[in-house]
């Protein structure tokens, strides 16, 4: 297995705004790292550069300590799982899985053993003789995974592998994937735009926005200490309330605000409903286990999450515990230390 180091990668397509503006991070041996960000942030391009499917304008890239910038994709000892799976439509499941081994001259008995093993791990045995067209979306996705596992590569690269599954299947597959790669002891770089996938599966998350890294850290880090307004609002559902200092002050929810031009943030689920000042309830959005309230608290219109059990009323009391507050610089959106 291997460590992946990405150093100062730059990339642009044509004359427009660069897609990646000097991105650096590293993935430790056996670590599961997600590249998270909205569409167009450059995460897929970055993954394709690591795979060798795209080339960077400048920067360095090493896998297992070896500089691979000039190594062709097939010799980088990586496996890539494509968003649309990219199965060979004219080959059976078995041939799809075995192709990479065959081309590398692995002896036939070993190909058979490894293919059978990968198929067993993903429950594909009954499907081995079928063609991709005869498989469901979930089954195709498992074939794509088997094709990567069978290679026993040093690094697994996954490009939104769950995005084509329906919500129920995606939920179930998340856990399975995590377990699968833990067992394979693989280094994993996983691209997703889905914060829940990134949070639940990763050891660490690299948050990208407009070609730049916003924050690198454990899911817990990103949630507890978002490094920027972008990070604060991109992670968490419903997103963090962010209000300018003046509105925050007028609302009376935040008594001891420091001086300066800043933005005040508080997560809806950390606002305490039932104590503190009175606020009008503007919108009620029940989502099942809890209810999201949009409140009118004098200037600020924060959203708050309230346990499902309580209900009713045109007003409620709301308070912001002092520890729940996040402060950001209004000019550049960067995080400021709490007073």
């Amino acid at each position: 297995m291997a460590e992946v180091r990405v150093e100062n990668i730059r990339k642009s397509f044509g004359a427009g705004r660069p897609v990646l503006e000097g991105v650096s991070f590293s993935v430790a041996d056996g670590e599961f790292v997600s590249l998270l960000g909205p569409s167009g942030c450059g995460k897929t391009t970055l993954l394709r550069i690591i795979a060798g499917l795209e080339y960077a304008y400048s920067g360095r890239l090493s896998i297992g300590g070896r500089e691979v910038s000039d190594v062709p994709p097939k010799d980088r000892d990586i496996a890539f799982v494509f968003q649309n799976y990219a199965l060979y439509p004219h080959l059976t499941v078995e041939e799809n899985v075995a192709m990479g081994l065959k081309l590398r001259g692995v002896p036939a008995p070993e190909i058979a053993r490894r293919t059978a093993d990968a198929a067993a791990r993903l429950g594909l045995e009954p499907l081995l003789k079928r063609r991709p067209a005869a498989l469901s979306g979930g089954q195709r996705q498992r074939v794509a995974l088997a094709r990567s596992l069978v290679r026993e590569p040093r690094v697994f690269l996954l490009d939104e592998p769950l995005s084509n599954l329906d919500a129920v299947l995606r939920e179930r597959t998340r856990g399975e994937l995590k377990l699968l790669f833990k067992r394979a002891k693989g280094t994993v770089v996983y691209v997703t735009h889905d914060q829940v996938e990134a949070m639940t599966m990763s050891d660490r998350v690299v948050l990208l926005h407009e070609g730049k890294i916003q924050q690198v850290g454990t899911p817990e880090d990103l949630y507890r200490r978002p490094a920027s307004v972008f990070a604060a609002t991109f992670l968490g559902a419903p997103p963090m309330n962010i209000v300018p200092r003046a509105d925050a002050e007028r609302s009376g929810l935040f008594p001891d605000l420091p001086e300066g031009d800043l933005l005040v943030g508080v997560r809806p689920e950390e606002l305490k409903v039932g104590e503190g000042r009175e606020a009008a309830i503007v919108v009620v959005e029940p989502v099942g286990s809890y209810t999201i309230l949009t409140l009118d608290a004098g200037g600020a219109a924060p959203r708050a999450a309230r346990p499902r059990t309580r209900s009713g009323g045109a007003t409620c009391r709301v308070a912001a515990p002092s520890g729940a507050m996040h402060l950001f610089d209004a000019a550049d959106g960067g995080r400021l230390p709490n007073p």
């Binding site: 060798g52 499917l53 080339y55 910038s69 062709p72």
Partner: peptide
């Protein structure tokens, strides 16, 4: 870096 996808 060399371009592996298109050798031109």
């Amino acid at each position: 870096m060399r371009d592996h996808s298109r050798a031109g």
